[in-house]
Write a protein that binds this DNA or RNA. Structure first.
Lengths: 222, 222
DNA sequence: TGATAGTGGAGAGTGTCACTATCTAATTTA
DNA sequence: TAAATTAGATAGTGACACTCTCCACTATCA
């Protein structure tokens, strides 16, 4: 097929397809002439995936490229798909740890890092020291502490339990796929799209619980 | 205090403080002369909060302004703090539902919306029809469907259970605060920062579970 | 009592990001 | 054969979150 059909079938505008090709999210088409190229089903799949990661998953284009490269590469083993996916999907953390404010060499940051290590150890989790989620979590906890919300940090235990339960179900479901390629694809998709799904469900459940507890009514909101 | 100290105590650069004042995230200082103003502890708190919401929570500045306005306003009732916070904290959803691709008037989108309604009903949740999380969730589910991941949609039940459990604990913890003002603040903070916390924990737990199931080792990754 | 550093406020400038538009020459397609 | 598409390259756009520059002033230290 040519680019027009590719655009129609995926809902991605032609200029955007061209842009994604330049950026390497989608490979070039098979050239058939000086100004003609042909595209196949793989282009459709890959483009749909790119669109989903960027639009729904909110990934930067560069991260989406990495994730797509991972899925469509041949030399992956099941031992590192997940790790590489997590690396690719963690939005490039800007410099952190600086600008803590309030003089004092940032006690909250150190405490938070220790707290993360402690949590991981206590749960018996085996996590690579380089997993970017460690940093993200420590940053968030340090911020919570600086905002004086440390009296709620026991919620963390509940969060960790829930995460463990989720991860257990997810890993189990995905490992049932025999095909390594399909596993890699599912990991990327569910890691990226799972975040908004969980966030939405949390908000919905919050509203429901709050209504039940505070007696709020299900009326419209400004 | 003057702006220099405000900057030092919060870790926010002076030009950024000025920008935040222009954007209304932080109120103006109390003028004491043609080119002098004084700032107080409220400025410090508010600026820290602004920084947290933007840097860690990843909110757009406009959303952070709304959230801060909510916290520091006087006329809120406990019946709508949460709803308003959710409205303020949901990143402005761009147009959705269009550009589905593949001809066919987007069956995935309709099915997903129905699926969300069904889930909410099945769980017995009381959720306002206008809650923005409905849309976000439906979009994500529709995308999952279009990517052919609908055979995993039973994971949704696990997600919903986890969300319900989390929300229950959160709402319970927050409602223990008698002060409505403190409640509003906690809601905003935990709604915004809870997302990255949960996402990180999920990733850590995933790696741990995968290691256990696949026998992966905790070595370094590229 | 200067010299130096630090303000407040307004407007313009910067860098990044994700597209989007335009152009040319060369095909297809009707 | 005329109109519509196409590939590819380059340039432009709009949103966003700052960041810089000025200037007429204070504030503070030697």
């Amino acid at each position: 097929m040519r680019i027009g059909e590719l655009s129609r079938r995926t809902g991605v505008p032609i200029p955007t397809i061209k842009y994604y090709m330049r950026e390497g999210l989608v490979p070039q088409g098979e050239r058939t002439g000086p100004n003609q190229a042909r595209y196949g089903e793989e282009h459709v799949r890959r483009l749909r995936l790119a669109k989903a990661l960027v639009e729904v998953g909110g990934l930067p284009v560069a991260s989406a490229r990495q994730a797509l490269a991972l899925i469509f590469s041949s030399g992956i083993s099941e031992f590192d798909v997940l790790g590489k996916a997590q690396y690719a999907l963690t939005p490039p953390r800007e410099r952190a740890g600086d600008a803590a404010g309030d003089a004092a060499g940032d006690a909250a940051g150190d405490e938070a890092a220790a707290q993360v290590d402690d949590l991981i150890a206590r749960r018996g989790w085996q996590v690579k020291p380089g997993n970017p989620a460690r940093r993200t979590l420590a940053d968030a906890l340090a911020t919570l502490r600086r905002l004086g919300q440390d009296d709620y940090l026991d919620l963390l235990e509940t969060y960790a339990e829930a995460a463990e339960h989720l991860a257990d179900t997810e890993v189990r479901a995905i490992s049932r796929r025999g095909d390594l390629h399909a596993m890699a694809e599912a990991i990327v998709i569910w890691t990226a799209l799972g975040d908004p799904v969980i966030a939405s469900l949390r908000r919905l459940a919050q509203e429901a619980r709050a209504a039940r507890l505070l007696g709020g009514t299900a009326e419209e909101t400004a």
